[in-house]
């Protein structure tokens, strides 16, 4: 049997004595579209940081296509076929849009010859053409030469996704790609990602927007306080008692907020 594309086993991580990921295990099957959801502070971003190697887990193992990558340096992981985006936009502010995308290609273009060939001096190289083509597919070809720092939030959010795609990954990790986008943009992003998934790219998406999750993902993993509380089809996630408790339970522990929320409903 084929090993799952991504497999986490018993993964734990503490920061200064506080355990924020506890014994998390789940698989992401190749070709799937998995959502990673959970309340704020549940540990979703931390899990992405462990998978991409920004941090190393204290316990457990992370395997890609059956191979343990725990000891593989963060910079080599993108070359193994996983790329990620960031919740807080982490584009290079002084680079142009196209340059940011070309940076995303780095894992495929690290040879000395590639490094020392000009990207634009004598006409456009294949790297630049490829980057512009990718931007075009996302409807972003209005801005190729623009310096990223000057662009609006929604655009930069999309460029983050395209930059991760530029690595031609097998596994694409997206941390809240739809946050801050309006409903039209969110729907377009969902369609775009579904199209990407059609080409064989496996998705693991952190997202709060349940509409987005339901339209895009077939599978969901739910975290709460660093523990996995649900691992199953997206369709039944909102009926799961543990998940309901995680979201409602938070509100119960915060009686005042719940009370004022109810008052708000009555007043409206």
């Amino acid at each position: 049997m084929m090993p799952p594309l991504l497999a986490l086993q018993g993964v734990s991580k503490s920061f200064g004595g506080l355990e924020v990921i506890t014994d998390v295990a789940f698989n992401v099957e190749a070709g799937g579209r998995t959502a990673l959801i959970g309340p704020n502070g549940a540990g979703k971003t931390t899990l992405f940081n462990l998978i991409s190697g920004v941090y190393r887990q204290d316990k457990g193992s992370i395997a890609l296509s059956g191979e343990d990558i725990s000891d593989i340096a963060s910079r080599r992981r993108i070359g193994l076929g996983m790329a990620r985006s960031f919740q807080n936009i982490r584009l290079m502010p002084h680079l142009s849009v196209t340059e940011n995308i070309m940076l995303g290609q780095q894992a495929r273009a690290g040879s000395l010859a590639d490094m020392l060939t000009p990207l634009s001096l004598f006409g456009r190289t294949k790297w630049r053409r490829e980057a512009e083509e990718l931007l075009g597919r996302m409807g972003l070809d209005t801005y190729p030469g623009e310096v990223v720092a000057t662009l609006p939030y929604g655009i930069r959010k999309k460029i983050e996704v395209v930059r991760a795609l530029a690595a031609s990954p097998k596994l694409l990790l997206l941390d809240e790609p739809a946050a801050g986008l309006n409903p039209t943009e969110t729907a377009a992003l969902s369609d775009f990602l579904a199209e990407i998934a059609e080409t064989g790219v496996t998705l693991l998406v952190v997202e709060h927007d349940m509409g987005f999750v339901r339209s895009l993902c077939d599978h969901a993993v739910v975290l709460n306080f660093g523990r996995k509380i649900y691992d199953g089809p997206t369709g039944s996630v909102q009926e799961d008692p543990d998940v309901l408790e995680a979201y409602l339970g938070r509100r119960n522990r915060n009686e005042d907020a719940a009370a004022s929320a109810r008052e708000g409903i009555h007043a409206a």
Partner: peptide, 15 residues
């Protein structure tokens, strides 16, 4: 220039 802007992300991009 990428390394100048963000070392963590540059590293994750394979630099």
């Amino acid at each position: 220039r990428a390394v100048h802007d963000d070392e963590v992300v540059s590293d994750l991009m394979g630099v």
